[in-house]
Design a protein around this nucleic acid. Structure first.
Length: 727
RNA sequence: GCUUCUGUAGCUCAGUGGUAGAGCGCGUCCUUGGUAAGGACGAGGUCAUGGGUUCAAGUCCCAUCAGAAGCUCCA
């Protein structure tokens, strides 16, 4: 006789074999009709279950009903809708093989393989088929099978994805869900559940998009089609969701960047290379000035370094070997170096090719290698010339000795050399070197996007060189700075992530003990700062763990902005030292940090954050003066001159439009204050102040308005002139 | 890089194999005005680029470049 505890603390005792439904029925017939599933907490584990799932014993139960504001209910609904969509697609495209279809935060997807390339015009057909299944109001029926029997069944069906899924599933039995009561006839899917009671519960759904995805996230695996959709318990909620998406898109920094003339990207210059227009440049300059001031207050020293560096520098740091493919190609100094690089690339192609092509390219390698040896001197190819696989290490080895330059992908090696330029004593530490350093990375073409993922960007970078004792305090100070900057810019909705190394992976350099030390440094500093952060394996940099500050863009994608990274490895690689109190040489610890991350990404996110309506201190144009008619031109020019004289960024609109359209246009440029100036204002030496939302803030003496602006700018919006405050 | 989609005036977008379109913006002139759009006229195009099919291509096919969504990657 299971004893049930409800969320309100009330308890029920039901007969053995009772289900979640029986709990609902025991409470009332209304709830019994409305319930679609349950969340059972048993043995300390909370689990969502089907409505007809038997109770495991004494437990706590939350009943789930068809409500669009309950994440668990939506989870069930969307998981089930994924099944309905899968059935529809299987019917329309009979060679479909399903792989994996989970619910998401705002919908669901199903990964599948079919010979038909599903594209948006197909959505309507699929949705119509789904609607048919929903109208039939078929029950979701679960059945279980012993593992052996189930595996045989799946293997007979010939879907390797489902066989894979089953192999990874735990437990002695596997469960299937039939969409309908006629097992063997109605459509079914291997699934651990749970589901809603029947398809009729789905009141609103939409297929959103389709795209490619690699099976199990592996680039070398088969590429599947991923169909995204969403579902709700009523049509209104779906409509509201779609309207929200539309609204969010209006905040997109690519759209606003163009409308507000903040930045542009032109393929003639290069994709992923941002051209800052004057308006964007003002926002960036103001941000940089602000951060520079904060850095000086915290004991950072500005430095400058060039945009390129010797290849050897990046061989030492490890960046060149690790990230060669995502860097702009190295600038080898000699023809021999360039030739060897071509040869190396040709060898790689030969290794990738298959079949007849492979032999063909191997022959080209041989001819080319011969030519290189004759033209630029023997490189030791010898009898390896016939076999690309044997030639490969020889050429790689030769290339390692060829010198050249690299567009810098990171600032740290340059800063390390500034540190190393002097003999350092422990008395000088910490040394904090800061630079708005521009770096170049050849990001994959499919990754590029607006300002947030680009190939050339400027980091608000700094490197702290300190003793092991100082590490924690320095990290804490970096966290504090990042939080301070985010708070000044009114970011409240961000999360922190501690990125740890993945012990399984071989991409990380250095000794495990140093990694553990560094990871512990970060945890301790985060704890001391009161920063709540999630730990994520595999998110570390190759040289050290880090804390990243992550925010979402207008369509919910997460982007890393600020970062704090602890690094015991690069000091080791560059063999930098300081003399300790004991008069011996010691290895300093490095902290890499950037509170904004990159100016490009940060400003991109900032545009979306403010929807282009920047606070006064950042706004490209802070005040617009608009005349009623030519009669007040002279006074308007006086006003303009006074504002400019007070250091404000001002635009004078004395065009021939009427004040209505004039104001409309200035508002659409998101200028914080629009001053309307006519004959009345000229007579009183006042300005009529309007904000960019269209509200009239009243008429003020010019001097009072200027004073208010200056206060607002100096305090970065924390304080405003009393009269302007009301808005 | 991969899958799918997209590329027409400064911007947003129509365009059925048969002479290149609209709205907004821009320019000139008229209108001298009070808070979301006064009027007239005008300028703007190698239909992303390069091939192909066709009597004929913005439209169909291929390639390249660029953009979008997702996957993968992100020092």
């Amino acid at each position: 006789m299971p004893k049930i505890t409800l969320p309100d603390g009330n308890q029920l005792t039901l007969a053995d074999g009772a289900t979640v439904y029986d709990v609902a029925a025991a409470i009332g017939p209304g709830l019994a009709r409305a319930a679609i599933g349950g969340a059972i907490t048993f043995d300390g584990n909370r689990q969502l279950t089907d409505l007809n799932a038997p109770l495991p014993g004494d437990c706590r139960i939350e009943l789930l009903t068809a409500k669009d504001d309950n994440a668990d209910s939506l989870y069930l609904l969307r998981h089930s809708t994924a099944h309905v969509m899968a059935e529809a697609i299987c019917k329309l495209y009979p060679d479909t093989q399903l792989a994996y279809g989970p619910p998401l935060e705002d919908g669901f997807y199903y990964d599948l393989h079919t010979s038909h390339a599903i594209s948006p015009p197909d959505f309507e057909r699929i949705e119509a088929e789904m609607q048919r299944i929903v109208s039939e109001d078929r029950k979701f029926c679960r059945y279980e099978m012993p593992r052996d029997e189930a595996m045989k069944k799946l293997e007979a069906e010939g879907n390797r994805f489902k066989v894979d899924n089953a192999l990874r599933a735990e437990g002695g039995t596997l469960s299937f869900y039939v969409t309908g009561e006629n097992r063997g006839q109605d459509w079914e899917d291997l699934c651990r559940g749970p589901h809603i009671p029947s398809t009729g519960v789905i009141k609103a759904f939409r297929i959103k998009q389709v795209s490619g995805s690699y099976y199990r996230g592996d680039v070398n695996e088969q590429q599947l089609q991923r169909v995204y959709g969403t579902a709700f318990f009523n049509k209104k909620a779906l409509k509201q969701y779609e309207q929200q998406l539309e609204e969010a898109k209006k905040r997109d920094h690519r759209l606003l960047g163009q409308q507000l003339e903040l930045f542009t990207i032109n393929p003639d210059v290069g994709s992923g290379l941002v051209l800052w227009e004057p308006n964007g440049a003002i926002v960036r300059t103001m941000l940089e000035n602000y951060v520079k001031m904060e850095l000086i207050l915290r004991g950072f020293e500005p430095v400058f370094t060039p945009h390129i560096g010797r290849l050897d520098l990046y061989r030492t740091s490890g960046h060149y070997p690790y990230y060669e493919d995502s860097q702009f190609p190295a600038l080898y100094e000699t023809d021999r170096g360039r030739a060897l690089l071509c040869l190396r690339n040709l060898i790689r192609r030969a290794e990738e090719e298959t079949g007849e092509r492979k032999a063909e390219v191997a022959q080209q390698v041989k001819v080319f290698a011969d030519a290189v040896a004759q033209a630029f001197g023997d490189f030791g190819g010898g009898d390896a010339l016939d076999d690309p696989a044997k030639l490969s290490p020889v050429v790689e080895e030769c290339l390692c000795h060829e010198e050249g330059y690299l567009l810098k992908p990171m600032n740290c090696p340059h800063h390390i050399n500034i540190y190393a330029a002097q003999h350092r004593s422990y008395r000088q530490l910490p040394i904090r070197l800061a630079e708005f350093g521009t770096v170049y990375r050849y990001e994959q073409s499919g990754e590029l996007g607006g300002m947030v993922r680009v190939r050339g960007f400027t980091q608000d970078d700094a490197h702290i060189f300190c003793t092991p004792d100082q590490v924690q305090a320095e990290i804490a100070s970096c966290i504090e700075l990042t939080q301070q900057v985010l708070s000044t810019l009114e970011f409240k909705d961000y999360r922190a992530r501690i990125g740890l190394r993945d012990p399984e992976s071989d991409k990380y350099i250095g000794a495990a003990e140093l990694w553990e030390q560094a990871e512990q440094n970060l945890r301790d500093a985060a704890a001391a700062s009161g920063l709540s952060a999630t730990e994520e394996i595999g998110e570390a940099a190759f040289y050290g763990p880090k804390i990243d500050f992550v925010v979402k863009d207008c369509i919910g994608r997460e982007w890393q902005l600020g970062t704090v990274q602890v690094d015991y490895n690069l000091p080791e690689r560059f063999k930098i030292t300081y003399v300790g109190r004991d008069n011996r040489e010691h290895r300093p610890v490095m902290i890499h940090r950037a509170p904004l991350g990159s100016m490009e990404r940060f400003v991109g996110i900032l545009i979306e954050h403010f929807a282009g309506a920047f606070p006064l201190w950042l706004a490209p144009v802070q005040v617009a003066v608009a005349t009623i008619s030519e009669k007040s031109d002279e006074y308007a020019q006086e006003v303009h001159k006074s504002l400019v004289g007070a250091g404000l960024r001002v635009l004078l609109d004395d065009g021939s439009d009427k004040i209505g359209p004039k104001k409309h246009r200035l508002r659409s440029r998101k200028i914080p204050y629009i001053l309307v100036v006519g004959e009345n204002e000229a007579a009183d030496r006042t300005v009529n102040v309007n904000d960019r939302d269209g509200a009239s803030l009243g008429t003020f003496p010019l001097a009072a308005f200027i004073e208010g602006c200056i206060l607002e700018i100096q305090t970065k919006g924390k304080q405003r002139h009393g009269a302007l405050q009301e808005a």
